[in-house]
Design a binder for these strands. Structure first.
Length: 274
DNA sequence: ATGTAAACCTGTGCGC
DNA sequence: TGCGCACAGGTTTACA
């Protein structure tokens, strides 16, 4: 489910409510992708200082230590005033003095991992290889020259390089197809073959698509919702994702669907020529 | 070093 | 109504 926009929308929907809270208790459900890495009781009494995002990870900062939260394919977070009974797929509850943060994740590809700091080996393992932040504070966080340099020596298709996350983070299967549409680039084009103007267009497209998606509350294909339970609407703005066989909104050509690395890719054969 | 497939797990929708 | 299969927003892991 969650790509950068969904994670960022989730973050914004509960960060202010949870900041300053202290942990009262922790409940663990079925195992997630990785073990928590500490005892739930070890977190009791800790104060939550801030909620940040790095790529598709949420970072819940304590005054000492942090939780790295990943939503995997099917995860979503809710922040609630009370503590309702846990459902079958509710696998983590952080009960705090200001409310309950609950992870709902049917497929359990998600994770909640404790790290003592950002230099903790487990944090390095999960975050260390991540690429540039497309929606970072400064212009330099997603530097064009770095983008060009990184793509130059990549022989894989541009779609797969975007998904890999080691050049730029946060672009998943929906937004990779959407960004490539706006940049006018064929998804199967080798990254190393892209011209500088195309790469400039791609960088802008990624920033624009992700920003727009955040504004629209993310994409709700089946079950995504933010920490208040609200759905996103960006799927309505999709130009190509999930639109195989339908007319391109820009030119009327039928949208194609192909397979790249076991994932579906969608594109317009007329608008995307490079 | 880079590229590709399999793996993790559950639910849903479709053809028969 | 049931069964089997393909597929789903991600990422690590093992192996060419």
């Amino acid at each position: 489910m969650p790509e950068l926009p969904e994670v960022e929308v989730t973050r914004r929907s509960f960060a202010l409510k949870i900041e300053g809270a202290r942990v009262r208790s922790v409940r663990l459900g079925q195992p997630l992708r990785w073990p928590l890495g500490c005892n739930g009781e070890d977190l009791i009494g800790r104060r939550i200082a801030s909620v940040r995002r790095r790529g598709k990870y949420l970072l819940l900062d304590f005054e000492q230590g942090m939780l790295l939260i990943h939503l995997g394919m099917s995860g979503s977070l809710r922040f609630m005033d009370s503590l309702p009974p846990a459902g079958k797929h509710d696998h983590f509850d952080l009960v705090t003095t200001q409310g309950v943060l609950r992870l709902h994740d049917p497929r359990r590809f998600g994770a909640v991992v404790y790290a003592s700091s950002e230099s903790d080996p487990v944090a390095i393992k999960l975050l260390g290889h991540l690429g540039m932040e497309p929606l970072g504070q400064s212009e330099s966080s997603f530097a064009l020259l770095v983008f060009i340099k990184e793509l130059k020596h990549r022989n894989a298709s541009i779609k797969q390089v975007l998904l890999a996350g080691d050049v730029v983070v946060g672009v998943g299967n929906i937004y990779a197809s959407e960004s490539l549409f706006w940049a006018g680039i064929r998804p199967a084009t080798r990254a190393s073959r892209l011209t500088r103007p195309k790469i400039e267009r791609l960088r802008s497209a990624i920033i624009d698509v992700l920003s727009k998606a955040v504004e629209r509350g993310g994409s709700t294909l089946r079950d995504f919702s933010n920490a208040d339970g609200e759905s996103g609407h960006f799927q309505m703005d999709a130009m190509v994702y999930g639109r195989q066989g339908q007319a391109c909104k820009a030119c009327g050509t039928l949208i194609k669907q192909i397979r790249q690395g076991q994932r579906s890719t969608f594109y317009c054969p007329n608008c995307q020529v490079g």
